[in-house]
Design a protein around this nucleic acid. Structure first.
Length: 305
DNA sequence: AATATGTTCAACCGCTTGTTG
DNA sequence: CCAACAAGCGGTTGAACATAT
């Protein structure tokens, strides 16, 4: 309830969007929800459950459409809705899942518990598409997808790794092998897995799967998992936690974790003097912050050498 | 300090899909 | 099988807020 009150305070600042004339006649409200409406909806759902939204709206005395009630509940009032910044792990997952399902936000949202399709969609549009725009390439272009897979996603993995190691007192061996293994283990926790042609999560709370048929029907051309018929993970480990390289990886399609040097970002890069750095309210959580932009620039320089 | 510009995200819209009678 | 309705989905909008000038 505190969340609602907090939001309500913010909402009071907003000008209430009045109903249009025609809708006034119908006595329907539009625009931001009031705390009273929220409470009415919460109480009604608590008593009667979800569903039958048009009936719900009428019975509860809400002067809203059923659609509006449903959206309000699913995207905001549901107890399990998670708020706050998208974590690095979630970013990685969104990028990966988007390569499989494209803009199927609700599908993607299934693998991010507490996140709504609307939230993921907003994230994609405001962050990822904007990046593509700044790079002057289409977000659906092969160049951009390749860049995502070969530059951004590995970079995200590194940042997740860095964050993990920064918060643990466990000593980590300095050699690369151990670094990679830790990275892999972390990803084993956060990344979905294909087992017997089903896409499942390695996280305990992510137990959903989808059928082979659906996967085959919906996988995109850039799908890194396409045609996999054996059990594997995004970042494979054998029993000894050895990291698979491109040469020994039994699943050569799983290439986005490979070193990015062989892939160039230059095909979709902007003019040399165009600023790289995008604005961000929270640099710790936005994956194309200044640090990453510098990283990309270095990659680009390596490519051109 | 005032204004302009950019960013975010809740909410709406229209279309598609599923369900029911 | 078909029509009507409900639910779900993805695209879009616009107001509030943040940041730059």
């Amino acid at each position: 309830m505190d969340v609602i009150k907090e939001r309500e305070n913010n909402k009071k600042k907003k000008s209430m969007v009045s109903s249009s004339c025609s809708e006034d006649e119908m006595d329907l409200r539009r625009g931001p929800w009031t705390i009273d409406e929220d409470l009415t909806l919460i109480n009604y759902v608590a008593t009667h459950g979800e569903g039958r939204w048009n009936t719900l709206a009428l019975d509860a005395g809400l002067k809203r459409t059923g659609k509006s009630c449903r959206l309000r509940w699913l995207n905001y009032l549901r107890p399990d809705v998670r708020r706050g910044n998208i974590t690095l792990e979630e970013q990685l997952l969104i990028l990966e899942l988007h390569t499989h399902w494209g803009n199927r936000w609700s599908k993607i949202a299934q693998y991010l518990p507490g996140r709504t399709d609307n939230e993921i969609k907003n994230y994609w549009r405001t962050r990822v598409q904007k990046l593509a725009k700044h790079l002057k390439c289409d977000v659906n272009s092969k160049q951009f997808k390749d860049s995502m897979r070969n530059l951004w996603m590995p970079r995200l993995v590194e940042r997740i790794q860095a964050a993990a190691t920064a918060t643990t007192t466990t000593s980590v061996a300095a050699n690369n092998t151990h670094t990679i293994n830790n990275r892999d283990k972390l990803l084993m926790k956060s990344s979905p897995t294909i087992i017997n042609d089903e896409f499942v999560s390695s996280q305990p709370h992510m137990t959903q799967s989808y059928s082979t048929q659906e996967y085959n029907n919906t996988s995109s051309s850039s799908n890194s998992f396409g045609n996999n018929k054996v059990s594997t993970t995004l970042f494979d480990l054998d029993d000894n936690s050895n990291y698979y390289t491109k040469d020994n990886n039994p699943n050569p399609n799983l290439d986005y974790y490979q070193p990015s040097h062989q892939h160039s970002f230059s095909d979709c890069i902007m003019e040399p003097n165009t600023p790289w750095i995008m604005q961000s309210g929270d640099s710790s959580d936005i994956f194309w912050n200044a640090e990453n932009m510098l990283f990309l620039q270095q990659q680009l320089m390596n490519d051109t050498m």
